[in-house]
Nucleic acid binder design. Sequence first.
DNA 1: AAGCAAAATTTGTCTGGACAAATCCACCGC
DNA 2: GCGGTGGATTTGTCCAGACAAATTTTGCTT
Lengths: 248, 248
Amino acid sequence: MTLHTDARTPRYAAILRRLRAEIAEGVHPVGASLPSEAALCRRFEVSRFTVREALRRLQQDGMVERVQGAGSRVLRATPGTVFVQDYRSVGELTRYAAETRLVLLDTGEITLDADLAGRIGGIGGEVWFLLRGLRHTAEGGPLALVESYVPLRFAAIAPDLARGAGPIYAGLARASGDTIARVEQETQALPAPYHVAEALELTPGAPALRILRRYSGQAGPLIASFNWHHGGDRYIHRTRIELDRDQT
Amino acid sequence: MTLHTDARTPRYAAILRRLRAEIAEGVHPVGASLPSEAALCRRFEVSRFTVREALRRLQQDGMVERVQGAGSRVLRATPGTVFVQDYRSVGELTRYAAETRLVLLDTGEITLDADLAGRIGGIGGEVWFLLRGLRHTAEGGPLALVESYVPLRFAAIAPDLARGAGPIYAGLARASGDTIARVEQETQALPAPYHVAEALELTPGAPALRILRRYSGQAGPLIASFNWHHGGDRYIHRTRIELDRDQT
DNA sequence: AAGCAAAATTTGTCTGGACAAATCCACCGC
DNA sequence: GCGGTGGATTTGTCCAGACAAATTTTGCTT
């Protein structure tokens, strides 16, 4: 197959457009693997460099995940309309988590129904172990409902980690001899489900902020959790972009 | 200069670490240009591919901007503590805005009640000039309601800027001889107010995502805008943290 | 001094090739 | 059936080279 591209647009851009369209149309459904780099090279009659450039951009859009030895897998059918990236170094991330932890310990009001064991087809079609917890503010009001999904192999130790010191993801990484490789986060505004409304003292259906956070190690997922928050008046999810350079 | 790298870490990672350290130490101050790719190749005794891989990651961090023909310029010395950064560089940000603009023009469905002049004690107790706009997707559905607040001194030119080409904040910066210094963003989930629900085809009170974005120049605020979005099913606000593997 | 055109510089795109590292899978032995 | 082993597959890293495209600099002309 030859590429239809005028002299202006680079070849990888044409391939990128083609692949994006195919993913959107369901030729490569979410969860399926893309053809290998070699196959794409043959199909588009370009070098591996060009194919990789296109795949790299798909990956940057969050549409595709690439694993050495395994291949490229479709994560989502469309790029996020607004795509914001959050950067923290590992040291800072740990410190951040530690600070959060401190606040929680300060109030001494964490509830953890860790013994509630479920086998729930949670996220990504996989079977996970569910932990449920509640976070309170210093004033005693509910701050967040946390629903954490842990791979089944951690089912035995997860409750202890949840009750122990330090963030859970760090404990899981330690226990499996892994290191944190990736943290992803998705924010949505949804009507509060009944059990969330009850926990956060909202009326069911009121706007709630749901933040999905996924921690992955080199070996695979460590933990994924939904954090349910008050919609607006009591909680603000805040980000900041700082540009240090002059723009013309 | 030879690289000190054990067999495990790739060479580009070592170069990346070195450059990051030098930028942090001020060897390459913010605003200055990095050595050219060719120079870095000679210095580290690697091929251009390897240098480019390191530079590409610096660019992804938002620390460096790369312009064809001009070189690589240092944008910021370190990743901030809790800063969330749009992963596009400033150059790409402009282009992104331009692309959005194109899409909008394509559908021909932008509504701009720019002549609706209000003196509204908007944000921060100051008096602002209000612009209102609606963004449609390619499929024709409403994507976002935009309410922009502009300082009164820009009241005369703002409507023209909104109708003209290019992002408004860039036009304002140009008009005032200023440069963008900071962009802040806050996300909240709120019950959709009536006028928002009407615009986005929601039922009033349904969960909506409100993103407040503030652009500031060196001299002061340039523009602040509320972006109202669908709550969840059609719009996902997504962030991602990717940790480099060369950190322990 | 100002304007314009050519040259030099610098990053972008692309080829072809090579080996390493991670993963997957079929086969074998128990 | 189970576990391990080895080969095949697939992506990651790296090189040397080439031309294109954008920008900056230089030098010439007016």
